[in-house]
Simulated scan of single mutants.
Amino acid sequence: MTFSVNCSILLTELPLLERPAAAKAAGFDAVEFWWPFASSVPGDAELGRFERAITDAGVRLTGLNFDAGDMPAGDRGLVSWIGRTSEFRDNIDVVAGIGARLGCTSFNALYGNRQDGHTPEAQDELAVQNLAAAAGAVARIGGTVLLEPLSGAPRYPLLTANDALSVIARVAQESGVENIKVLADFYHLAVNGDDVEAVIERHAPDFGHVQIADAPGRGAPGTGDLPLERWITRSHELGYEGYVGLEYKAPAATAFDWALRQRTAR
């Protein structure tokens, strides 16, 4: 199994730009990030520092989120956010530029919360347009846009794999783009009550990315009740060939003890 460390939720005791090197020191060769900047269009110097932190660490950037707004305040994406379209469109070019320079081809576009004062239909129409624009831009570097169901966000409308797949099908029908795939975070799907095993059986070859955390608690593998190893193994058996993102909460000192135990056992 090939794992990618999400440096936005793990190793948080360290400054952001020190986390890729820490992931490498822990034995991992790949990292992923939520949007790591305070604005949709950071300056060249800030971009350069972020990119050097990854290349100097000797790891590969395998996943990057588009700007999702103020995540600590509860924002969960700009894709369907009426009033911030220009901000999202400007961010597309920045994301694609980072991908081109670092060889990253997977980009997570969080859909966005439902807004007071706007109908779901209007937000969904905007989302289709924005997803098509994002997909068109990253297609030029061989990229894929990911669409993720989330838990713990009451106003976020994509809860199950089928919710995301329905949006993806609509974008394909209306715009013709085919490089949007579901991000199957087994933790979010399980917490939301989705039938994860059925999702894997039906859709594993079409997953754009897989992420894991255990439940309850969103902790490291083995801290909860989810059969994560079985789900990962079955996904690979059915044709999923990508990385498995480690997107859980754990102290840096013990964050990867489970992986060390696996390596020792083998």
Rank of each mutant, 00 (worst) to 15 (best):
M1C: 15
N6R: 05
A21Q: 06
A21N: 08
A22P: 07
A23K: 03
A23R: 09
K24G: 01
A25R: 13
F28Y: 12
W35E: 00
S40F: 05
P42D: 14
P42I: 15
A45T: 09
L47G: 03
F50T: 06
E51R: 02
D56C: 05
A57R: 13
A57Q: 13
L64Q: 03
F66M: 09
G83K: 08
T85K: 14
E87Y: 12
E87I: 03
V95A: 07
A96V: 05
A100N: 13
A100H: 12
R101D: 10
G103S: 08
S106Q: 14
A109V: 07
Y111N: 10
N113F: 05
H118D: 14
T119S: 15
A122L: 07
Q123M: 07
A135Q: 05
G136A: 08
A139N: 14
R140V: 14
G142Q: 11
G143M: 05
L147E: 11
R155V: 04
P157Q: 13
P157C: 15
L159C: 04
L159H: 13
A161G: 00
L165V: 05
L165W: 03
S166H: 12
I168K: 06
I168L: 03
R170E: 15
V171A: 00
V171K: 04
E174H: 05
G176N: 10
G176D: 08
V177S: 01
N179M: 14
I180D: 01
K181T: 01
L183T: 07
Y187F: 15
H188W: 09
N192K: 15
G193I: 11
G193S: 13
D194L: 04
D195C: 06
R202K: 15
D206C: 15
G208A: 09
G208S: 00
G208P: 04
G208K: 01
V210A: 14
I212A: 04
A213C: 00
P216R: 15
G219Y: 01
G222T: 08
G222E: 06
G224H: 09
L226I: 11
P227V: 08
R230D: 04
W231S: 00
T233N: 11
R234W: 00
S235N: 10
H236Q: 14
G242C: 06
Y243C: 12
G245L: 11
G245D: 09
A252F: 07
W258S: 02
L260D: 08
T264A: 09
T264E: 10
R266M: 15
